[in-house]
Simulated assay, not measured.
Amino acid sequence: MSEQIEEPVQVPPWRPENGPQPQVWCWPAGDQPALYVYDGGKWKYAPVTARLEHADCRTEYQVTLQTSRGRETVHRAYWWPQPGLRRAHGSASDPTDREPIPKTAAG
């Protein structure tokens, strides 16, 4: 008997009426952790673009998800944990609360 997994619930955008603004953590480009997201009946690889820690102690992960064979990507946010999310891999870098510096051709 196979396990029935539901697609994860997305997080609505933060608004001031939700309470204090969450703390945002990012990783350097090229060394981001990733999740597997259950989407459209399949597990899909999704690099994490940010982790948000909310004042009510909930954790949100923002990811980039490839949604179709046409390689369309979307940005989504999910509460952690939930059954439709699994850890793909971590990062060798510690997250920072500063904006990530994008890689450049020179650097």
Rank of each mutant, 00 (worst) to 15 (best):
residue 16 P to R: 15
residue 46 A to S: 07
residue 58 R to N: 01
residue 100 P to D: 03
residue 51 R to Y: 02
residue 42 K to V: 00
residue 34 A to L: 04
residue 27 W to F: 08
residue 97 D to T: 08
residue 94 D to L: 12
residue 23 Q to V: 15
residue 57 C to L: 08
residue 28 P to V: 11
residue 34 A to V: 01
residue 21 Q to S: 14
residue 41 G to N: 09
residue 34 A to D: 04
residue 54 H to D: 06
residue 92 A to C: 08
residue 39 D to A: 03
residue 79 W to R: 11
residue 81 P to L: 15
residue 58 R to C: 00
residue 51 R to P: 03
residue 7 E to W: 02
residue 73 T to E: 09
residue 16 P to E: 13
residue 1 M to G: 15
residue 94 D to N: 09
residue 74 V to W: 06
residue 49 T to K: 02
residue 9 V to N: 09
residue 31 D to M: 10
residue 16 P to S: 12
residue 72 E to V: 07
residue 105 A to N: 12
residue 77 A to W: 07
residue 15 R to E: 13
residue 68 S to T: 15
residue 71 R to D: 10
residue 84 G to A: 10
residue 5 I to V: 14
residue 30 G to F: 01
residue 21 Q to I: 13
residue 79 W to I: 08
residue 9 V to C: 08
residue 39 D to Q: 08
residue 56 D to Y: 07
residue 55 A to W: 02
residue 50 A to V: 02
residue 81 P to I: 15
residue 45 Y to T: 05
residue 94 D to C: 07
residue 38 Y to L: 03
residue 17 E to K: 13
residue 104 T to E: 11
residue 99 E to Y: 07
residue 75 H to F: 04
residue 59 T to D: 09
residue 40 G to E: 03
residue 3 E to G: 06
residue 89 H to I: 01
residue 75 H to Y: 05
residue 66 Q to N: 10
residue 9 V to L: 13
residue 102 P to W: 07
residue 48 V to Y: 02
residue 15 R to A: 15
residue 50 A to Y: 04
residue 97 D to A: 11
residue 76 R to Y: 09
residue 9 V to Y: 12
residue 18 N to Q: 12
residue 14 W to G: 04
residue 81 P to C: 14
residue 50 A to E: 14
residue 12 P to D: 00
residue 99 E to G: 06
residue 15 R to M: 11
residue 94 D to W: 10
residue 52 L to C: 00
residue 1 M to Y: 13
residue 96 T to Q: 14
residue 64 T to C: 13
residue 98 R to Q: 15
residue 76 R to H: 11
residue 90 G to W: 08
residue 66 Q to E: 15
residue 21 Q to M: 14
residue 29 A to N: 05
residue 51 R to I: 04
residue 88 A to L: 02
residue 58 R to S: 09
residue 78 Y to K: 04
residue 32 Q to N: 05
residue 80 W to E: 14
residue 55 A to I: 08
residue 106 A to Y: 01
residue 78 Y to Q: 03
residue 75 H to V: 13
residue 35 L to K: 00
residue 57 C to G: 05
residue 54 H to Q: 08
residue 91 S to V: 01
residue 12 P to Y: 00
residue 37 V to R: 14
residue 57 C to R: 13
residue 37 V to N: 14
residue 82 Q to V: 05
